[in-house]
């Protein structure tokens, strides 16, 4: 039935609807977010596009409800939309988890804060307040003077030294998307030739910028 639809009919062709790319982009974004030690740039446009596509598809499904003979098609559409929703939720969940884990770091470093969505920033602020207050009432308020700080071990500490920061020196699996030539992979100046389609296990820190600029993909 679906295959017999003439082009231009009211049926929405879901290859176009999702555009192969958006689904694969969210899939990659999800994978990167799950394996990367630090929180990455929020894909605002992508999420918005997917959201509108999901609601379009859901409207189509509603429409199909009226035609009993279109059950198979309806099921295919439903599975499709559920999969996309799942990826999207997973993506947001993965971000939220990292956000909670390093909440102070995310708010402390303006460069990291930039990468969050507006709602994530709000969430992080509220969460930080909540956790901070919880720790304060239970522990810090009972500590002697000079040791009451949440961010500092004691009032003579030089900097915020209780902040947990993500470990950027952990190793990640990655795939090279474009020829990169020699890339320095450690502090001794050792280099590795990154050519297209190579797979490596490397420390995250040296390839951080390459990942950000999409030359290298985390897998």
């Amino acid at each position: 039935m679906a295959s017999q639809d003439a082009p231009g009919s009211s049926q929405v062709d879901f290859a176009n609807l999702y555009g192969e790319s958006d689904v694969s982009i969210i899939k990659q974004a999800l994978i990167s977010e799950q394996v990367c030690p630090e929180i990455l740039q929020y894909q605002e446009d992508l999420v918005q596009r997917l959201e509108s596509q999901i609601s379009n598809q859901e409207a189509t499904i509603q429409e199909l409800n009226k035609h009993a003979e279109q059950d198979l098609l309806k099921m295919i559409y439903t599975v499709e939309v559920q999969r996309v929703k799942y990826s999207l939720r997973c993506y947001l969940r993965a971000r939220l988890k990292k956000l909670e884990q390093h909440v102070m770091h995310c708010l402390d470093d303006p460069e990291v804060k930039e990468r969050l969505s507006e709602k994530e920033v709000k969430y992080a602020e509220d969460y930080f307040l909540l956790l901070g207050q919880h720790i304060s009432t239970n522990v810090l308020s009972a500590m002697p003077q000079d040791f009451k700080g949440l961010l500092r071990q004691s009032s003579v500490s030089d900097a915020n030294d209780t902040l947990a920061r993500p470990n950027l020196d952990t190793h990640v699996f990655c795939k090279v998307l474009e020829d990169q030539g020699n890339v320095e992979v450690d502090d001794n100046g050792d280099t590795v030739d990154f050519s297209k389609d190579d797979l490596y296990i490397v420390r995250y820190r040296p390839i951080r910028d390459l990942v950000r600029d999409n030359w290298v993909q985390l897998i």
């Binding site: 956790l131 720790i135 239970n138 522990v139 810090l140 002697p144 040791f147 071990q153 209780t162």
Partner: peptide, 14 residues
């Protein structure tokens, strides 16, 4: 010792 105890208490609560 103060720093250590403070850290352990915070860890416990967290």
């Amino acid at each position: 010792c103060i720093l250590r105890n403070k850290r352990l208490l915070m860890t416990y609560v967290k």
